[in-house]
């Protein structure tokens, strides 16, 4: 019961902060709302008995990505407090389509009663996660390192000085 209340509270905060990221006019505010959203997601992981994932989420996203974003804003901003108008230019049917998709997803989840029985119990055990990476999902894990490498090469190519 208490857990259900907690999850509902977390969900409401999660959605509210996510909306705040999008509607905020100030870039810095957006980034801070994003940080709040990511930390709330980490709380959700805690509720799902995955403390390791929660710690990684906080360290990587809040610690790494958000800091990078703030530096990015700081280093590229021409005039302080520059505003990014968030008023949407999307056509009128964008909202109905998005709401329709959301409703479809919700209905799909609610009409699947066997869901709870099927989903394997998550294991927050860091040791088990490590074993999965080097056992069952070895090849995906190795391919991920190529992903990082491609990202690194790409970033250097696009950002470095020189011709072209």
């Amino acid at each position: 019961m208490l857990a259900t209340v907690a999850v509902v509270v977390i969900a409401v905060v999660l959605i509210a902060t996510a909306v705040a990221v999008v509607v905020s006019d100030n870039l810095v505010h957006s980034v801070f709302w994003l940080a709040a959203m990511l930390i709330t997601t980490a709380l959700l992981y805690v509720m799902l008995e995955a403390p390791f994932l929660a710690a990684i989420q906080v360290m990587l996203y809040t610690g790494g990505v958000i800091t990078m974003m703030l530096f990015g804003v700081m280093l590229t901003q021409r005039d302080p407090g520059s505003r990014v108008p968030s008023a949407s230019e999307a056509p009128g049917w964008a909202a109905p389509v998005a709401l329709g998709l959301g409703a479809t997803l919700l209905v799909a989840i609610w009409t699947t009663p066997e869901l709870a029985a099927l989903t394997p119990t998550p294991s927050g055990d860091a040791q088990k996660i490590g074993h999965m990476f080097l056992d069952r999902y070895l090849i995906a894990f190795e391919a991920l390192s190529v992903l990082l490498l491609a990202g690194m090469i790409g970033a250097i190519v696009l950002a470095r000085k020189g011709d072209a």
Binding site: Y137, I139, A143, L144, L147, A150, L158
Partner: peptide, 20 residues
């Protein structure tokens, strides 16, 4: 799992090649 990761690797390389 492998479909997703490889889809991302090829996309990432192509994003950069598009803007090269």
């Amino acid at each position: 799992m492998t479909i997703f990761v490889n889809l991302e690797v090829l996309s990432l390389a192509l994003y950069v090649l598009t803007g090269i």
